[in-house]
């Protein structure tokens, strides 16, 4: 179980404006939690804090009841996999090499039979075997995104945190990606937290939504509780129009739509 209590974070000096202030959050097991909010709200920072990558000013983050800062980095990496928002590479590697990196927490780079099997399986799962020996810089943005997700899958952790996994994916692949994420929860009992920019994807696929603004959680709850006009209007400072379609809430946010 991952729980954060009274967490504050700030990038520059202590007096500087806080990126996260007094956040309390319990990650729901075997569920998809979506973090939503405007640019700069602190979603990526929160995800980094949850995976013990971004240092915090105060508060605690606990993993299975223990303070993550007291757990060995390698052991945290066996529990939590984290995908950054943007992946710039200073090196030129193939898809296969990248996915093999996912096994690092388990084998420190010395791949055994089991590790190779996991790598093959993750490539298969993300429909990538044909691209295995292609270099990442020769792939389309969406193919590259899938390769990174395959690396995360190879890491084989109960918790998976994805910062904007739908980056660069077209509609078909976005839906496919969300289905894969759903399957990970139902078939493999994973717990997933992801940052989504398209509020409708959160509405359609998440079990739990956390809405952030200015480093604080404005509202969290199930889809029906958060995908509401008054909530979204404050979170995004924008006028939303909520429509119903097949029993689900759909948000319309174009200026042309009149309420």
């Amino acid at each position: 179980m991952i729980e954060i209590k009274n967490v504050s974070q700030s990038y520059g000096r202590k007096e500087a404006k806080k990126t996260l202030s007094d956040i309390n959050l319990t990650i729901r097991e075997n569920k998809i939690t979506a973090l939503v909010g405007a640019n700069g709200a602190g979603k990526s920072t929160l995800l980094g804090v949850l995976s013990n990558i971004t240092p915090i000013l105060s508060g605690t983050v606990t993993l299975g009841g223990r303070d993550v800062r007291k757990i060995k980095t390698q052991d945290v990496a066996k529990k939590i996999a984290f995908l950054k928002q943007s992946q710039q590479m200073s090196i030129r590697i193939t898809v296969g090499d990248l996915v093999e990196f996912g096994r690092f927490p388990h084998c420190r780079g010395r791949l055994g039979q089991e590790d190779k099997r996991k790598v093959d399986e993750s490539l298969e799962y993300m429909n990538l075997p044909d691209l295995r020996s292609r270099y990442l810089d020769e792939l389309s943005g969406g193919q590259r995104q899938r390769a990174f997700i395959a690396m995360i899958l190879a890491q084989d952790t109960p918790y998976i945190f994805l910062d904007e996994p739908l980056n660069n994916l077209d509609i078909k692949y976005s839906v496919e990606m969300m289905k894969i994420i759903q399957n990970l929860v139902t078939e493999r009992n994973k717990t997933i937290v992801l940052v989504l920019h398209d509020i409708n994807f959160a509405a359609a696929y998440a079990n739990h939504i956390v809405a952030m603004k200015n480093g604080q959680i404005v509202r969290e709850g199930c889809v029906k509780d958060v995908i509401k006009k008054e909530v979204l209007n404050t979170v995004f400072d924008h006028d939303f129009h909520i429509a119903e379609c097949g029993g689900k809430n759909v948000c319309l946010y174009f200026d042309q739509v009149q309420n």
Partner: peptide, 18 residues
């Protein structure tokens, strides 16, 4: 092998257990 992972960058390598 640790250097190989570190060439992915600070954050990514930390999340891979470095």
């Amino acid at each position: 092998r640790t250097y190989n992972v570190m060439s992915l960058g600070a954050e990514q390598s930390q999340s891979l257990g470095v």
